[in-house]
Amino acid sequence: MATTVGEPLFIGAQVAYWRQRRGKSQRVLAGLAGMSQPYLNQIENGRRPVERRATLVALASALDVSIADLTGQSGDPTDPARAAAAAHVPHIREALIRREIGELEEPRHDVRGLMIAGGSYDFATVAPQLPNMLGGLRGADLVQVAHVGVYTLKHLGYPDLARDAARLAVAEARELGNPAWIGIAEFIRVLAMPPEMPGAPARLAQRVADEIQPHIGDPEVRQAYGMLHLHAALRAAVDHRGDQAHEHLREAGAAAESLGEPGPDLGLARFAFGPTNVGFWTVATELELGEPHRALEAADDVAPGRLPIANRQAPFFADVATAMAQVGRDQEAIATFLRAEATGPQWFRLRPTVRDTIGSIIRRAKRNSLTRQMRSAATAANLASLIKD
């Protein structure tokens, strides 16, 4: 893939790099990706960000590359928190291999402490504990830790290892035979699946939801059932299936209303399933469907303070900010991006789509109209070169 020095290339620059390597004109690539040539031109020059998973999927498919080739390495490799977390990835890989051949080790860390750190998107604290815990835990504890492992590895840029951890969770849950943990483990597997796989993630989530549906009289099973429908909704949106996405959201909403908000323990596997979480996913799904106004309307009905955990709030604030940027509310978007950064700073610095949107806002602004908040957001997103005087 394209190599960079200093700050990462924005996604449009990666698209231009691969388009030129493939010998395609903008007109040809635009046609293959299902967009207009002026739209693609704005993406390549950084004036329009790539914010939807579906757009990334279309461009990656048309260029015959992976989404990772377009988004680049997750975050700044010189960032101390990212570097500290990534240093433990070889040990995680070794632990997963050893487990596969039956060499388990004695767990030494506290599962609850890891779950809390994971919920804060504190990858630098989580990563050193994962080798021992993935390499030795059993039962429901292993499934929970695998979930933290999957989203940590994905955000650090190791999706293949994330899928290995997900497969481990599924095997353990199937051995347990508990429908609630089967649902959670399969949710984790859907989470680990690459976005460039159209249809399969939504179908898997639906299939497992149908499998555990006879048991939803159990509140824990109902939580897993609802989470599966939420993920199916988002994946259906990526597949441009709006009707299916909304049907999944309705099914999840009904389950959430019957349960109410989770207690202080955040429910099964600390997934925090309930009406507020459904609201978060509704915003993300409407945004993915290309409906920023509907996303903002949904956001108005959400009280994020009801779920005071970073791995729910930070993506929500970033989604709201992205929707604001799409409807021309740039100043509000920047302020809301800064809320996302304050809530989950390590997560924020690893999100290429966040960086892209902030970059496009700054490129649209005139040099003498850059506000203090714009400069702060650019610095947080590793875009310092855009604000140099």
Rank of each mutant, 00 (worst) to 15 (best):
D319Q: 08
L204C: 04
I212Y: 06
A117Q: 12
T282P: 08
T282E: 03
A335T: 11
A333M: 10
R138M: 11
I43P: 01
A255M: 00
F273V: 04
N277Y: 07
P262D: 09
D218W: 04
D210N: 11
I182G: 04
I216M: 01
Y17T: 08
G46R: 03
Q144D: 14
G279I: 03
V190W: 01
E211H: 05
A13R: 15
G226C: 05
R339C: 11
F348C: 03
A30T: 06
V327R: 10
R339N: 07
S258Y: 00
V354A: 08
A146F: 05
P262M: 11
P275K: 02
A252I: 06
E341H: 15
A340P: 09
S25M: 05
N382C: 12
L249R: 02
P308G: 06
V283N: 03
R250V: 12
D319C: 07
A54W: 06
P201E: 09
L287T: 00
F10K: 12
V170K: 04
A295F: 07
R329I: 04
I67N: 11
T322A: 09
A325V: 02
M115Q: 14
L40A: 02
G119Y: 03
V145F: 01
I387T: 13
F187H: 14
I67S: 02
Q223E: 13
I361G: 03
R21H: 10
T371Y: 09
V208A: 07
T4A: 14
Q20T: 14
E103H: 13
R93G: 10
P159D: 05
R363V: 07
R138Q: 13
